[in-house]
């Protein structure tokens, strides 16, 4: 997969403590790992490196305030998931002590001791070579399932497919439960997802798909990481409404994905017309397979 990585690193520097900025100014960085009392670690194209900066509690406090704009309440729902999204679609994950509600569900984090800053990577054009195989004679996308292991590039590829389909004139709706596809900040997509795309940000997938069907009348519905029973039911509903579905699932290969009964059911009924399988074999986004699924009953 061709990659032009736009790290937008400069826009992130302003969040960091003043003394760090000079040291990190020219860094080409995919991830920054910040742990209280330990050296700062970054991950770039050539792997991880450790910097001569020891993170202090004051640094962590500064970063939490800066990333949350001193408004923890505004990120309450996101903090339950352990992350917040920054302008530009960058993702900040937190490690700390979980706060549980009376049902035992996580309602937030306190005593934050670690931060993982993931720089949003928009790879415009990464779907160019695959797209002809994904569109029917009328230019509408086939129902697509994109399979890859974590960090395999499936969300990046899905975003570019959605962008190109949308720019091609189709009404696209993205149900972005974890704000990873469009990287929305205050409801606005920070990554290019196409001219004719609506985004339901932070919305549970199954609920969001049905909401989109009723409210936004999409021609193409895009969602990430399906797998639960309710997701499958919502996908069936979407397919019955004549809307094309582009979805992703975690897995190293098709066999692994179809071990999950919900996805196996979808595959056996041949509801997905195209499958893409990605791997990390030659770096993120290595295409292992594109085509119609071959699943024996």
């Amino acid at each position: 997969m061709d990659k032009t990585i736009d790290t937008e690193w400069t826009s992130l520097l302003r969040f960091l403590p003043g003394p760090w900025r000079e040291e990190l100014r020219d860094l080409l960085c995919f991830e920054l790992r910040i742990r209280d009392g330990r050296p700062l670690q970054s991950v770039g194209p050539s792997g991880g490196s450790v910097h001569a900066i020891t993170v202090t509690s004051a640094d962590i406090k500064h970063l939490v305030a800066a990333f949350s704009q001193s408004s923890l309440y505004a990120f309450e729902e996101e903090l339950k998931q352990g992350y917040i999204t920054l302008p530009g679609g960058h993702r900040v994950g937190f490690a700390g002590k979980a706060l549980l509600d009376s049902d035992g569900k996580v309602r937030g984090l306190k005593d934050i001791s670690g931060i993982c800053l993931r720089v949003a990577r928009s790879v415009l054009g990464c779907a160019d070579r695959l797209l002809p195989a994904l569109l029917d004679q009328y230019g509408a996308p086939y129902h697509l399932l994109l399979v890859s292991p974590p960090q395999g590039g499936k969300t990046t590829l899905l975003r570019d497919i959605a962008r190109q389909v949308s720019d091609g004139g189709k009404r696209v709706c993205i149900v972005d439960e974890r704000s990873e596809i469009a990287g929305c900040y205050q409801g606005r997509p920070q990554l290019d997802v196409g001219m004719f795309t609506d985004v339901l940000d932070g919305c549970p997938k199954a609920q969001g798909m049905l909401m989109a069907l009723r409210a936004l009348s999409p021609e193409v519905l895009v969602t990430d990481e399906i797998g639960r029973t309710e997701d499958v039911l919502a996908i069936e509903e979407t397919l019955n409404a004549g809307v094309r579905v582009l979805a992703t699932a975690h897995g190293a290969n098709l066999q692994e994905v179809t071990k999950r009964p919900q996805i196996r059911d979808l595959m056996e009924r041949q509801l997905f017309q195209r499958i893409i399988i990605l791997s990390n074999r030659a770096g993120p986004g290595t295409v292992e397979f594109v085509g119609a699924p071959l699943i024996s009953r």
Partner: peptide, 12 residues
């Protein structure tokens, strides 16, 4: 602004 709209403090 804070309770119903969850607007970040600076904007609120």
């Amino acid at each position: 602004e804070i309770v119903y709209a969850a607007t970040p403090l600076s904007v609120a």
